[in-house]
Design a protein around this nucleic acid. Structure first.
Lengths: 207, 207
DNA sequence: TCTCAGACTAGGCAAATGAACAGTTGTGTC
DNA sequence: GACACAACTGTTCATTTGCCTAGTCTGAGA
């Protein structure tokens, strides 16, 4: 894609910002006013240059008909979903409980390399039981419920009506949960092990 | 939200479809033509009803200025941006170099608690020099260039034509870069310290 | 020095467009 | 029957808006 001059970039940015903020593409006169042009031809020149270079398409003679073609958007169609973010997962959570989530996180499936049909939710990490796997208190774990857990996976499981993050291990064919911190004990379930999902990604806010 | 008549629903669907397919909202005359109305007032009446019932907003007298309000969008306004993801940041990178990024990452500004005017890019972490701060090889660091680095911040700085992630520290008022791994040496810059940005978040793909 | 493209000023035309007014028709409701 | 309202027709008007012509200025190359 042909490079833009700094002024052309400014105009493109303004059109794009106006489109997302007001939902409407600016007219030539609005562009001219925004940049202090006393003539609309200046704006028209820039828009023409942006069209020529392939950053804009438009329907001739139609009002406000410019469409920005963000390079990224056209090249990589992004699949974005909002997933619920739980502080702690209550016992027996199910799909219908989605509205109980306090917050949501926008997840880009492609960036994280996930399949579109994955069943995703997010869980805020409590404590430092997984610190040796570099999962810290306050981190947001992205959990896939549709994935079948394998040995060594970080999984979230229901223990004493609270869900905790642990590493799934096997001993003599029997699964148990290993904490990645020597101060924590491993959990050998007496009955059935209730795994809620496999951690597939992690997001950390750095203050 | 007030219910729509079937005809109003059809008009709303057409406006919405036109917006996503052509990127442009139809005019009154285009709506009329689509439905075979011989008068634009019919279209105008429907659009007016949709406005009254809260399904559309518009800027009076502005052409093609109707915006559909999908229930979801109005409830959760998300500010999502695509940021360039660099493997390594070449020396002297600047705004114009954006197109050199191999990939992009979709970032939800709200989830990460970032200001909308932040200048963000992403950097793939190489090596384990920050392992004691739980930043691993392969992690994606989200860097804000507009933030002023403070003591203790994880920053990316230009060392020997390669950018590395380090902790910013001060000794006798002079800044230096500390590695969070005892096997790595701290960097005391001889001349000027070139800090490219402050790490504000981290994303990790967990296989 | 000449040329060319980018970035503008100035003014104007014609098409595109929203909106208003005055009606008509059908459906349901009190 | 009176009334309200959705769903239209037909027409006109005032703006809004894209786009055109003509020309200036400036800096980078050839």
């Amino acid at each position: 894609m042909e490079a833009l001059t700094s002024r052309q970039q400014q105009v493109l940015d303004y059109i794009q910002a106006s489109q997302t903020q007001h939902g409407v593409v600016p007219t030539m006169r609005e562009i001219a006013r925004q940049f202090g042009f006393r003539s609309m031809t200046a704006a028209a020149d820039h828009v023409r240059a942006l069209r020529r270079k392939g950053y804009l398409v438009h329907h001739p003679r139609a009002a406000r008909s410019h469409s920005v073609i963000p390079a990224m958007q056209t090249m990589v169609p992004r699949s974005l979903i909002n997933v619920p973010l739980y502080g702690t997962i209550p016992a027996g959570f199910a799909d219908e409980r989605t509205q109980e989530a306090e917050r949501t996180v926008a997840i880009d499936l492609e960036t994280l390399g996930l399949r579109p049909d994955s069943k995703i939710f997010a869980l805020e990490v409590r404590g430092d039981s997984m610190i040796n796997r570099h999962i810290c208190d306050g981190d947001i774990a992205i959990i896939d419920r549709s994935r079948t857990p394998k040995q060594g996976d970080v999984v979230t499981a229901l223990i004493d009506r609270e869900s905790t993050l642990k590493t799934l291990e096997f001993e003599n064919g029997r699964p148990y949960l290993r904490a990645e911190n020597p101060h924590y004990l491993n959990l050998h379930p007496s009955h059935e092990l209730l795994i809620q999902g496999v951690m597939v990604a992690l997001v950390r806010r750095h203050v």
